[in-house]
Design a protein around this nucleic acid. Structure first.
Length: 216
DNA sequence: AGTAGGATAATCT
DNA sequence: GATTATCCTACTG
């Protein structure tokens, strides 16, 4: 379906980890747009992510109130997975960022399927192609990701769930941002959701863009 | 197009 | 016992 990318188009694991180690998760998060996530036969190009910061800095973050057994991976090294169960039903995958000890992560919210669509469709019966990974729990389901990816390295060449960071960032004029989905309270206004313009795989739960009756 | 309600369980107070 | 970084279905206009 798609060719394997040239090796120099992707950062080495060491370079990828160095990028993810950046202390400002709101700058690291958009760098994940356009990157690839592979699990078995399924490959996805990321189109939507959200940034979450650490202790005392971000009321919307799981780590805001400090380290707990669940959030422990967020305090570990960058490039590892942080997987949690949402609403008792859905697995969601984050990439841990920032230097160890400083909790931060980027939630992978949506992507476009580049390869392995038959497998993904089998896991999500009835979904249209552009909906296969439209939403954080849909993405993990289409890729077959669950708790077993929690606290494991995503950057290794043989990682079962592998993140490939693009050597060149997505064009800035295509990167949009807005409030994070489902985040209430004090963190609600932070525009730390980043997505690529014009992508049909971006999840639709954007906050009320008031609809004008007669657009120009 | 938009909105509403229910499913369901780990996690934390 | 309350809360939740969601998804799906069904309904209304």
């Amino acid at each position: 379906m798609n060719d394997v990318p040239p090796a120099d188009r992707w950062l080495s694991p060491a370079a990828a980890r160095a990028l993810l180690a950046g202390p400002d998760v709101s700058r690291v998060a958009p760098a994940l747009l356009g990157c690839w996530l592979q699990a078995g036969p399924v490959t996805v190009r990321l189109t939507e992510v959200e940034a979450y910061a650490g202790v005392g800095q971000d009321p919307g973050s799981h780590a805001h109130r400090g380290r707990t057994p669940r959030t422990a991976p967020m305090f570990g090294p960058p490039g590892f997975g942080y997987v949690y169960l949402s609403y008792g039903l859905h697995w969601c995958l984050n990439v841990v960022t920032g230097p160890p000890g400083q909790a931060a992560a980027v939630l992978l919210r949506a992507g476009a399927v580049l390869a392995g669509a038959p497998t993904a469709s089998q896991r999500r019966p009835g979904a249209r192609e552009q909906d296969l990974c439209r939403g954080p729990a849909r993405l993990t389901k289409a890729l077959g990701i669950d708790r077993s990816s929690n606290a494991v390295d995503l950057l290794g060449a043989d990682a079962p769930v592998r993140l490939l960071l693009a050597a060149a960032a997505a064009p800035t004029d295509l990167v949009r941002s807005g409030p994070r989905v489902g985040v209430g309270g004090a963190g609600a206004g932070t525009p730390w959701r980043f997505f690529l313009a014009g992508e049909s795989s971006v999840s639709p739960y954007r906050l009320a863009a008031p609809r004008r009756r007669s657009p120009p």
